[in-house]
């Protein structure tokens, strides 16, 4: 049985991507990135002074990420405020972004990255990381390269790129029972060195399939880098 994607995509095909920088004027840098119906907006402030003083690191800059879902971004309204889920995602997002930023250039200060999901349809952390990487670049922060993120799924026997919510919830019937049959593997890569800066997995997969997933992730993320770069190049020179 071959798996057919609900929106008729090819296995290696991502949903429609929208990418833009400079969407929030007051911020030092900002960006929007969407995978289909998953839409993230990001504002970057800094490097700026860090208070309280005891949080300061005299040797380098602190990178703080805040990821959250807007209350109306999901089917059932989400109560505002951080959850255990958003706290973890904020943490792994910061880890995904840190390797490309020259944090030692701004000792004692902080760069704040605010990631707000305004529409959620799976892969929101990936959309958030892609937007955050663009927003950091847009904020003029020295970066070795960009960070690109995509989620790969194993659905039934198929390895597919950029899971939608419906696919994340895919089940098969086995012994008369509905069984979860989707594995979600979000990745982030550094755009130039191609190192992995985020990897999580949720489900069940063999070693060989995981290798296939990484291969597909690398292939798709190359397309994302191009889109991110194009969006940055389209910026209007009107930042005042």
């Amino acid at each position: 049985m071959t798996y057919k994607r609900p929106d008729k995509r090819e296995y290696d095909e991502m949903r429609k991507i929208e990418a833009k920088v400079g969407i929030i004027k007051r911020a030092d840098g900002s960006a929007l990135f969407s995978f289909g119906n998953s839409k993230a907006i990001v504002a970057v402030y800094g490097p700026r002074k860090l208070y309280p003083q005891h949080l300061q690191n005299p040797q380098k800059c602190l990178l703080r990420c805040y990821y959250d879902l807007a209350s109306f971004s999901v089917a059932e309204r989400k109560r505002p405020g951080p959850s255990r889920r958003s706290t973890e995602i904020s943490y792994v997002t910061a880890n995904a972004l840190k390797p490309v930023i020259d944090l030692e250039a701004f000792p004692g200060s902080v760069i704040d990255v605010y990631i707000l999901i305004i529409q959620a349809d799976a892969s929101t952390r990936c959309a958030g990381i892609n937007a955050a990487s663009m927003a950091l670049a847009h904020a003029g922060i020295p970066m070795k390269e960009l960070v690109t993120s995509v989620s790969i799924g194993k659905i039934g026997d198929a390895i597919v790129a950029d899971l939608a919510k419906e696919e994340e919830d895919y089940t098969i019937k086995k012994d008369g029972k509905e069984m979860k049959a989707a594995t979600d593997i979000p990745f982030a890569f550094l755009s130039r060195s191609e190192k992995i800066s985020l990897m999580q997995l949720d489900g069940k997969i063999s070693y060989d399939d995981l290798k296939k997933a990484i291969k597909l992730a690398r292939k798709t993320s190359k397309k994302i880098v191009e889109i991110q770069e194009q969006a940055l190049k389209k910026v209007k020179e009107d930042k005042t």
């Binding site: 929030i24 007051r26 990001v42 504002a43 402030y45 805040y66 959250d68 209350s71 505002p80 707000l116």
Partner: peptide
């Protein structure tokens, strides 16, 4: 009615 003044909008 809830307003969320996320630091996204202003320093």
């Amino acid at each position: 009615v809830i307003a969320e003044l996320w630091p996204l909008a202003s320093e």
